[in-house]
Design a binder for these strands. Structure first.
Length: 103
DNA sequence: GGCGTGACTTATA
DNA sequence: ATATAAGCCACGC
């Protein structure tokens, strides 16, 4: 399986109400240094219907500055719709909403 | 195949 | 705290 497909698989396996960081996805894709490829993979986003790129955030739980699949505002709505709350800093509470496959 | 770029992360100064 | 370097992989030229 190519790195891209692995990334897609990982992103698709993110449950509702949870968010994962690029590094996390990259780590589960095989190597945490693939975070860049994760960004590119979501950038091309061949299947946005199965690949909720809005559930992928930076390590700080914040959205990428270049995030523009529809608008940062849209992302906030989608995450809120999934039950994810935002902190006053406009970031996701990674301690509570970070994707935890082991948990 | 090389080079530059990019939705990132980590390490070092 | 910011700045810089390196690492990884895919795409376009």
């Amino acid at each position: 399986m190519n790195t891209f497909e692995k990334i897609y698989e990982v992103v698709k396996m993110i449950p509702c109400g949870r968010v994962a960081s690029y590094g996390q996805v990259a780590a589960y894709a095989g190597n945490p240094r693939r975070s860049r490829v994760v960004g590119y993979a979501l950038h091309v986003n061949p299947d946005p219907d199965a690949i909720p790129c809005y559930r992928v955030v930076t390590k700080d739980g914040g959205l990428s500055e270049a995030f523009a699949f529809g608008g940062e505002n849209v992302q906030r709505e989608l995450l809120l719709r999934d039950g994810v709350e935002f902190t006053q800093d406009g970031r996701v509470d990674m301690e509570k909403y970070r994707w935890r496959p082991n948990f």
